[in-house]
Design a binder for these strands. Structure first.
Lengths: 146, 146
DNA sequence: CTCTTGTGAATGCATATGCATCTATATGGA
DNA sequence: TCCATATAGATGCATATGCATTCACAAGAG
């Protein structure tokens, strides 16, 4: 029987409930503002970071921790909304390159204040500078890379 | 323009990626073991804690941070699997009381080692006792109650 | 008692997700 | 060159989720 310390349980349950609650608040606020879901923001941001060269969907999938089919369909929806363009990738006939459109950049910028406002209210304001650094450090130890 | 400290951003992105990655590992492991999803575990545990008196669905909804319709349908599926019984609630004709069945308790117990094993590997082992206490404390400050 | 309003729970319909599979191209070896 | 295998990406089908609405009962006002 695997046994866990009470602190592990407390940390884990808080981790989940905090992330769920904050995500929920963000999604609700975006919806109320007539904006797309947070997943679009993350995608738009990664695509924007890739610049005019564009980014390959499999690369995006890795960065966003999404399943392959989720990436494919998320890009479908974002493309339908006119926020990206997909073009064939020369050098690899199987692939494509995704590039942000001007409307895509505008959309990401419109989403940011809503997102950042809630992070300020729900994260930044509840921790002092030392706490924030400590929390970031502790969570970094939990990254499942190793 | 709302501005956030780099530590806030780092803490938030880690919070999300860690919770996503760990949940993912847990869901995958449960599936591979032929067990139901983690959401069932959480529900079964809350129902078990309520004891033979049972628990009202709206109470469960609050504890699990679920939408009303999600709760209703989750209970449908769990009931279909024979893990709970729902009976009318005397004193409130609108309501019902959900009680864990023996099979439900057995299922929760079968799920626990898989769940706990991964929490041990991915959380407990990566932090020393002091880190765990600190992390739990910091996350407690982020609970959106206040 | 009756009417209005509030609350617990279910459900029809549209959209999103997960799984498995499929197509097309790439790559490495015989 | 030809074949086997691997990788990028899309998609059909089943299941789950979100939204809005609905139904049933509760509670308080008159």
């Amino acid at each position: 029987m695997t046994s866990l310390s009470p602190e592990t349980i407390a940390a884990w349950t808080s981790l989940i409930s905090v992330s769920t609650a904050v995500l929920d608040r963000i999604e609700t606020a975006l919806k109320r503002a007539g904006l797309p879901p947070l997943s679009w923001y993350d995608a738009l941001l990664e695509i924007e970071k890739a610049g005019p060269e564009g980014i390959r969907p499999f690369e995006l999938k890795a960065r966003l921790l999404l399943a392959q089919y989720s990436t494919s369909r998320l890009l479908d929806r974002i493309e339908t909304a006119g926020l990206i363009t997909r073009r064939a990738c020369d050098g690899d006939g199987r692939g494509q390159l995704v590039v942000l459109s001007a409307a895509g950049e505008a959309m990401r910028r419109r989403m940011w204040p809503v997102y950042a406002g809630l992070l300020a209210e729900l994260v930044e304001h509840r921790l002092d500078a030392e706490d924030r650094a400590q929390l970031a450090g502790l969570l970094a130890k939990l990254h499942p890379n190793a």
